[in-house]
Each structure stands twice: as structure tokens, then as C-alpha cells.
Nucleic acid binder design. Structure first.
Length: 589
RNA sequence: GCCCACAUAGCUCAGUAGGUAGAGCACACCCUUGGUAAGGGUGAGGUCGACGGUUCAAAUCCGUCUGUGGGCUCCA
């Protein structure tokens, strides 16, 4: 993603193809090395990936990092020997007998149709079922590195055996490999779990697995994100509500969650009655809607809710802030007429694109997810819903990809994925149509002709889970939040304690201007205070010594090592306020 | 849930022939009042994730559990 960006389209494509050939070839070389070291190994598949390659294999013992080193050095020998890759086509019985000791390969062969050529590639003494393409010879694999050992189900099926997967990568030059490895190291430095601890944003405790505790600084960011969304809600005419956390199971039976989502829910029993902790807000909003009679004149009705949700995620899938069991979304449900769907989805997408720009995210990738196997509602309802979403996307400038079977159980959806500062992609927003909820909750409005009609529900979230969004933002900014989001916007550094009184005076003035300012009154040297403020990624360091106290000025330094010199309190206030406002301004605000 | 790994002071980590624990930073106190990324000294701090087993003796070996990490599956 990084080094590919230069150059025109065709060379980019050439490079991608070259890398795929190199990596696929490296996978063969790795399998060769493994077979020499472990002749009893049974091989699965070994394809190239976007970032490297892997090979799956079965072995009677677990591989260790030490084994990886051995495999890698043997690979280097095989590469140095510069064996040619030789393509051969076979009959079905030939290719079967070639792989007679390889049960997984035999299964793959069974799955191949007779219309495709049954081929192998051989280098040196190693032959593998493969349609290629490869580089000419093993010597044309310029740079390799084995990275990790993992478990992976055979054919991705959790009911089938778990194989060992070795991940590696290969590049067209040693330099390109080095750049890639540096990028991984950079990603580690930005890891939100590490930064969250270093910057005192949030913590975890084993007593509440996968459930974040937001510390005071993290809470400031969290609240600012909600404030940001609330401001857009005013503009886009949403109404916020607060709804209960726990409901009798009758509700979940009615909404379909009891049948379709139970394994992800927490249940408790009180008063001999079973209750479920909400994993979603939609049923609550349906109850609110149903509590009153509605006219078509009121629609669309946009109900927003930052309610805390709990979802039991299987152990092993949780991850820092990005996959948690307790969270809140910038969730809202739009109740509208079928005719209003198009306009509502369009407006939502407009709001979403506008807000992503504020966070310096590039244009999102858009995915339209269509009906899954496990679903509620008739096929004709699904037809209507899918057509509606498609038409909005067709009318917009956005390019999108439609995927069968990925929709929610209650309706099709559009998901938005954005790349962060180092090229990784994350799912943020989502908009989902729901024709089932209005049915099951018997929602109605009175139409122009005086008869009862069925509204449509649109589920939508822009930032998605605030927890997740914050995790992504931390990595995107590398912990250096823009001024408007920084938990502490400036720290005042008195050089001696003679300057503390003036420092407090400055602080009070800036606080009254709505800024988040600290004073570092510790008996430490200025250098240390600056260092720590830098490490905490505080945007402004406001140094105050005898000179400033006397002249009623402030020496201003930014975290980018920019020394802005001295200025008056008025100048500083203006500077900070201007930066705060421009930081989170949307197009329409 | 599955495979593999890891769990030692608030943090980062050291502690492999099994013999009742160490460092740096942080913290407390003292000295130092210092102009743009670490001033110095002293001190306190750990039932080595939990439970069980082997052993005269377990942070160290074995088992179970919990949590976390890398993946797989899942992600409404």
C-alpha cells in the first residue's frame, strides 16, 4: 500500500503481479524446506496474500520459533541453488499418485473439475499441486522473511482439523522487505492498546473481560466524540433518547434476537423471569415509536441513542478497544415511509462522508451486503430492501462492491470502510434497512388517505462503536490527537516556583475560554516537564519563567518541536480557539 | 470456541543446572530553583495470575482454570 502508491496504474499492477509470483514461489520453497526437515508433514494450501504468503500443514508436534529459523535458513539455501520452476500437466490418476501421501492435496484434487488443467510445479526435488504462476527459478526470490506460526482450520471450517500455518513474506528487493518490516514496527508503536496505557486513556481488568474502563483522559475524548455527533444530530434533525439496559426476554423473542442472536447475549433471571441485557437499541426504539400514534406528517422520525450495549463475544475474538463486550454506538433508527428511504439513506451518507473528513480519513470503501442464509422476512421484502439500497448507491458518486450473504438477519446493509494513516482498513459506519422490525412490533403511521400504513426502519451508525472508533483514531493519529480532541490541550510549565502564581493566573484565563489546560507545578526541571509533555503528546507547552512573568507573556512550544516564541495571553487564546474550531468543523457547520 | 505462545513491583523487563526475588522508570522524602526532550541522594514497594500436583524444597517441573497476545472461525 505504501511503496505502491508511486508510479502509474500499469506499473502498480505489474508490481502486484510480480509480488504474487515471488510470494507464491516462496511458499513452495518453504514447503520444500519443511518437507526436508519434517518428511511426515501433510500439506494444505500455500497461497500468496496481500502482504506475503503462508502454507498450512499438519505435523504431530507444534512448531516453535526456533523451527522457523531453521526453515528460513534452509529456504535461503534452496533459493541460492536457483532451481527452475517447471510446469507439468497430468492426468487425474497421475496427479493422485504423485500426492498419494498427502491427504489434503488429494481432497483438493477431488475438488478440481476436469475442465481445468491438473498441473504441478516442480523445483529441484519438490513437486506441488499448483496452477502457478511462479518466477522462473528459486533464485528469483530476492528477499524473504518468516513471520509467525498460527493455527488455521482446514478449508476455513471450524469443524475440520486445525492445521499449523506459517506466515512469511517476500519482496522484489531486500529494501522493499525492509520498508515493509519497518511499517509493521510503526504499526506496533501506534497500537492503541499500548498508547491507551501510556497516555492514560483507558484500562482493562480481568474481572470484566474485554470491557474497557475509560480513565479521565479517555473519557474526555469519548465525550468529545459524542458531542461531535450530537452537533450533527441537531443539524440533521435527530432526537436523542435514553432507554433501559435490561428487558424481559419477551422483547427479544418478539424482535427475533432470541432466535437469531441469543448466543451473543447476556441473560439474567430476577423474580423468576428471564431478562436479556440489550445488545442493540432497535427494539427499545420500536417500543418508543409504538407508544404513540404517528401521522405521515411526522415522518421521518430519527431516534438516536448512545445506550450501552453488551454482546458476548467468543473468547479469542476480542481485541483492545476494537472488539469489546461492552460498548456504545452512535446509533440511531429512522422510521420513515418506503418513499423516504432513498432520501434518508442519501442524507445519512452525506453526514457520514462529512464527518470522516474531519478525522482526516480518506474516502471510504463501500460494501453492499445482501441477504444471508439465516434471516427473517419474506423474499419479496428482501427484494424491495436490496433494490432501495442499490439505487441510492447508483445515484451517488461512490463506487461499491455488492456481496451476497453478508447482510444482517433483518435486512441488507451498506458498510463503510476507511484506511487509517498507515494503510490499514477499518469498518466504521453502517446503514441497514429493516422491514421486519416494523412487522414484529406492529408499527404504523396514518397515511394521507387516513389509513394505517407500515413504516420502514433504517438502522444507522456513523462512527460505529465509540470504543472501536476511538481505538482506530488513536492508531490513526499515533496518539497525537488534534487540538480539539486532545484530553489536555496545553500544559503550563513554570520554570521555578516563583512563576507558579502567574502560571495559575494564565491557566484560569484559558480554562474560562473553554480550553483544557494543566499546570505542572512539580519541583522538577523544565527539561523534564517538557520531555514528559512531549511523551504525553500534549499539543502545546506553555513555558513561563521570570521573563514571561515580568512581561506578562507566554513562551509557546508545540509538540512538533515548534518553538513559536513568546506571545500575549490574548494572542495565545486566539491561536488555540481558532485551531480548536477549525479542527472539527464540518462542511455545513 | 479452536491452535500456539505468554502472565515476575504501578510500567518496561531480568531472573534455564528447583534452594523462600532483581534493575530502570514511576512513587515518597531530602537536596537542587534549573530557559525548551531525563539534576542528585535516600526510601518504600512483589504470598512471581489462581488453584492443585511432584519434591526435603517450586517464580522455575507437571496439570487445570483465568486473562492477554498472534492467528483461524465468528463479527448482529
Amino acid at each position: 500500500m505504501n511503496s505502491m502508491e508511486s508510479g502509474n496504474k500499469s506499473t502498480t499492477k505489474d508490481l502486484i503481479n510480480l509480488r504474487a509470483r515471488i510470494r507464491h514461489s516462496a511458499a513452495h520453497v518453504m514447503a520444500d524446506a519443511i518437507q526436508r526437515l519434517f518428511p511426515e508433514a501433510k500439506f494444505g494450501v500455500g497461497p500468496p496474500t496481500d502482504d506475503g504468503f503462508y502454507y498450512d500443514l499438519e505435523l504431530d508436534r507444534a512448531l516453535t520459533p526456533n523451527d522457523l529459523d531453521q526453515i528460513e535458513s534452509l529456504m535461503r539455501e534452496i533459493i541460492a541453488a536457483n532451481h527452475s520452476f517447471i510446469y507439468t500437466e497430468h492426468t487425474r490418476s497421475q496427479i493422485r499418485s504423485l500426492h498419494k501421501d498427502q491427504p489434503y492435496k488429494l481432497e483438493l484434487i477431488e475438488g478440481l473439475s476436469d475442465s481445468t488443467a491438473l498441473s504441478t510445479y516442480t523445483h529441484g526435488t519438490f513437486t506441488d499441486l499448483c496452477q502457478g504462476p511462479h518466477v522462473d527459478s528459486t533464485g528469483k526470490i530476492p528477499a524473504i522473511k518468516l513471520l509467525s506460526i498460527a493455527g488455521a482450520y482446514w478449508r476455513g471450517d471450524e469443524n475440520r482439523p486445525m492445521l499449523q500455518r506459517i506466515y512469511g513474506t517476500a519482496f522484489e528487493t531486500p529494501k522493499a522487505l525492509k520498508i515493509y518490516l519497518q511499517r509493521i514496527a510503526e504499526a506496533e508503536k501506534r497500537d492503541h492498546r499500548k498508547l491507551g496505557q501510556d497516555l492514560n486513556l483507558f484500562m482493562f481488568d480481568p474481572i470484566a473481560p474485554a470491557s474497557p474502563f475509560f480513565l479521565p483522559k479517555g473519557t474526555i475524548v469519548y465525550q468529545l466524540l459524542m458531542d461531535f455527533v450530537r452537533k450533527l444530530y441537531l443539524e440533521y434533525e435527530y432526537q436523542e433518547v435514553i432507554t433501559p439496559q435490561i428487558y424481559l426476554s419477551d422483547l427479544w423473542k418478539r424482535s427475533g434476537h432470541y432466535d437469531n442472536y441469543r448466543e451473543n447475549m447476556y441473560f439474567i433471571t430476577a423474580d423468576d423471569r428471564e431478562m436479556g441485557v440489550k445488545p442493540m437499541n432497535c427494539p427499545a426504539h420500536a417500543l418508543i415509536y409504538a407508544s404513540q400514534l404517528h401521522s405521515y406528517r411526522e415522518l421521518p422520525l430519527r431516534i438516536a441513542d448512545f445506550g450501552r450495549l453488551h454482546r458476548f463475544e467468543r473468547s479469542g475474538v476480542t481485541h483492545g478497544l476494537t472488539r469489546v463486550r461492552s460498548f456504545a454506538q452512535d446509533d440511531a433508527h429512522i422510521f420513515c415511509t418506503p418513499e423516504q428511504i432513498h432520501d434518508e439513506v442519501r442524507k445519512f451518507i452525506e453526514m457520514l462522508l462529512e464527518s470522516y473528513k474531519v478525522f482526516d480519513f480518506d474516502e471510504p470503501r463501500v460494501m453492499l451486503s445482501l441477504r444471508p442464509q439465516k434471516r427473517v422476512g419474506s423474499d419479496s421484502i428482501w427484494d424491495t430492501a436490496e433494490t432501495a439500497l442499490r439505487s441510492v448507491l447508483e445515484d451517488s458518486d461512490l463506487s461499491y462492491e455488492a456481496v451476497e450473504g453478508e447482510g444482517a438477519f433483518y435486512g441488507p446493509k451498506i458498510d463503510f470502510f476507511v484506511p487509517d494513516a498507515i494503510g490499514r482498513e477499518w469498518q466504521l459506519g453502517t446503514v441497514q434497512l429493516d422491514f421486519s422490525l416494523p412487522e414484529s412490533f406492529n408499527l404504523e403511521y396514518i397515511g394521507q388517505d387516513g389509513s394505517s400504513k407500515r413504516p420502514v426502519v433504517i438502522h444507522r451508525a456513523m462512527l460505529g462503536a465509540i470504543e472501536r472508533f476511538m481505538g482506530i483514531l488513536i492508531e490513526h493519529y499515533g496518539g497525537a490527537f488534534p487540538l480539539w480532541l486532545a484530553p489536555i490541550q496545553g500544559t503550563i510549565i513554570p520554570i521555578t516556583d516563583r512563576n507558579v502564581a502567574y502560571a495559575s493566573e494564565i491557566r484560569n484565563i484559558l480554562i474560562k475560554e473553554g480550553l483544557r489546560i494543566d499546570v505542572d507545578t512539580r519541583n522538577e526541571r523544565m527539561n523534564l516537564k517538557i520531555r514528559e509533555a512531549q511523551l504525553q503528546k500534549i499539543p502545546y507547552m506553555l513555558v513561563i519563567g521570570d521573563r514571561e512573568t515580568l512581561e506578562k507573556t507566554i513562551a509557546v512550544r508545540t509538540r512538533n518541536n515548534g518553538n513559536l516564541g513568546t506571545m500575549s495571553i490574548e494572542q495565545l487564546g486566539l491561536l488555540l480557539r481558532t485551531e480548536v474550531i477549525s479542527g472539527h468543523q464540518t462542511n455545513t457547520s
